[in-house]
Design a protein around this nucleic acid. Structure first.
Lengths: 334, 334
DNA sequence: CTCCTTTACGAAAACGTTTTCGTACCATGA
DNA sequence: TCATGGTACGAAAACGTTTTCGTAAAGGAG
């Protein structure tokens, strides 16, 4: 690897001058600077990030927390946009975990051990003390789809989206609408529930308690169970809203098992708008999240914090998606 | 952040002794060492990775190259297993790209700028000179689904898998079998083609030239076009093999557009075995890749290189998958 | 010509580690 | 008693940078 000392030898000036030339300091002769830059470029010199960090305390590396998995398309797309946005801004990304090799290390420790300038909490068990510790720490952080009072949040829009879904479903003639939602304690769920109720109120739809069921996000199994209990009701719903497209899979299988079909007997709506949804038959009606924007907003907010250490901003950005209409909701003629 | 100097002050011994105690050097009194370790643990001390690298030239960080995208489930699952295996071995991972911020930087430069101990080439344009440069460099590398003569390869099994597929399809009574394959120049495609021809020969199936078409991996559009040309043949195939499950999507849409249906009119087989394939209707018959094993093998091979710098091993590991039978291949009764 | 300011550069310290080498102390054997 | 050897520790250099400060040379003002 070519170091600044090599450059110093080749250029015949001291390392200090090299460093200053490369960093655009004013106290170096423009011609010298230019020739140094040229040689550095020709030799493919780049300052070693570790050494540079030691002096500047900036690693240009941001940590990303995906606690459980990025097995779901939604999360991998968010990751992809985080990666893209970071790179565009000159940052690399590193995954943060809480065990590395045989030794346990809290998320925060891991991030500081790796000298991250900041971390994006993209997917995590938000009540985990380690996650809380991270979010409330001095380290710049930004959280996606959750709100911590101590750091900025990027939230997908969840109230209006539910209203849009219900407008559509109700427009198709449905009045018996069930809602299988994700974990109750999640901020996203709360928003969606409130959007759901609000829309029902506006539309004059009455929803029996049994129509509102808790499942888990991205768990076909849980949603399958919930679906079963809905189907076994004396008066089952005509339309079921699912927490996400994966969960719909579980519901769909259960509906088939009951000898029913979508949308003839039961209509269904997913959430997230994963790319493969258009391959489902019937084509799934779902709400497409703007994953590109979510990742980008997270990175930009984080970098803003990193580069302006003074202001501890606590903004909240809300990203809207859009309803994607498929064939999974049947039109009911009265 | 607590540094080794802080520990030195607290423990009342020099930094050298602290370092030696923590690294298990023999020339430190066992009792002293134990008390140092205890204090270090209580304070949550971890040596700074950047500083440590500077002395040891080991970053415990491995670079991962996903040149284009990890938008496809197959790649995100591979990434996930890479991440898991790395972490289990005490390594973190960083994405390698060839532009960072506004400045261009070759993959190799980027990896060495970030002091990666090695890099996994997981998905890339293998003929890209930068990728070649990386694979042939001094830096330990491992490549997935391609073979470079200079570094170990992890290959998914591709010959036998095609034979299995053809055994099955032929067993279902098909003789007019088309094969839409991915990029011709790719090693994977070559293997699959050879498996395809070999199986056809063994089964006594004659395949007209028009039945073999090139498309691109993960491009529904390309496969859609290829499918169209197959359907417009005077004697179209009864079964089409696709390069991957995403590509099948394109084919499926095209088949529907022609007023035909899968598998009644045309049977189809995918590849990769993404989780959502079971949601397609009909359920897709496909060949499931062992993504966990692929990622793990890559990481283990890479770490073996890193930790035994002497031997430049050049092994090739082949990972088998398994046929996943759905409903997309019709049984033909003669 | 002197004094002051500006310009352009270099020496050296520092960041947090690891590692080499030196050495003080103590025990052992002759 | 002295030489020898082992044990346990510390001083200091080094890794590749950035940054502070010092200073020599050059130029301008009086």
């Amino acid at each position: 690897m070519v170091t600044i000392k090599d450059l110093s030898n080749i250029c015949g000036v001291s390392v200090s001058t090299i460093s200053k030339a490369l960093n655009g300091q004013p106290d170096v002769n423009p011609e010298t600077a230019e020739s140094i830059r040229k040689i550095a470029h020709d030799l493919g010199y780049h300052p070693n990030s570790a050494a540079r960090f030691l002096k500047t305390n900036r690693s240009y590396n941001i940590g990303v927390l995906f606690a459980d998995q990025l097995k779901h398309e939604y999360f991998s797309l968010v990751l992809d946009s985080i990666r893209e946005a970071s790179q565009a801004s000159g940052y690399d990304i590193t995954f943060i975990s809480n065990k590395i090799g045989s030794s346990e290390m809290s998320f925060l420790k891991h991030a500081s051990y790796r000298n991250c300038d900041g971390v994006v909490i993209a997917q995590a068990r938000f009540e985990d003390p380690q996650v809380v510790e991270l979010a409330t720490s001095e380290l710049p952080t930004v959280v996606i789809d959750h709100v911590f009072s101590e750091c900025p949040s990027i939230m997908s829009e969840n109230v209006q989206s539910m209203e849009e879904i219900l407008d559509y479903v109700s427009g198709m003639g449905h009045t018996r609408i069930a809602f299988i939602h994700g974990e109750e304690r999640s901020a996203v769920t709360q928003k969606r529930l409130s959007g759901f109720y609000k829309a029902c109120m506006g539309l004059g739809i009455k929803v029996p308690e049994e129509y509102i069921l808790e499942a888990k996000y991205h768990s076909p199994k849980e949603s399958g169970l919930a679906t079963r209990s809905l189907l076994e009701l004396r008066e089952p719903p005509t339309c079921i809203l699912y927490p996400d497209d994966y969960s719909y899979m579980g519901g769909f299988t259960e509906i088939e098992k009951h000898g029913l079909s979508v949308p003839k007997d039961i209509s269904a709506v997913g959430y997230d708008g994963i790319n493969l949804a258009e391959m489902f038959r019937p084509r799934l009606t779902t709400y497409r999240q703007n994953v590109e924007e979510i990742g980008r907003a997270a990175v930009h907010s984080l970098i803003a914090q990193i580069e302006n250490p003074g202001e501890k901003l606590r903004e909240m950005v809300i990203i809207r998606g859009s309803l994607l209409i498929g064939d999974s909701v049947r039109k009911i003629d009265e």
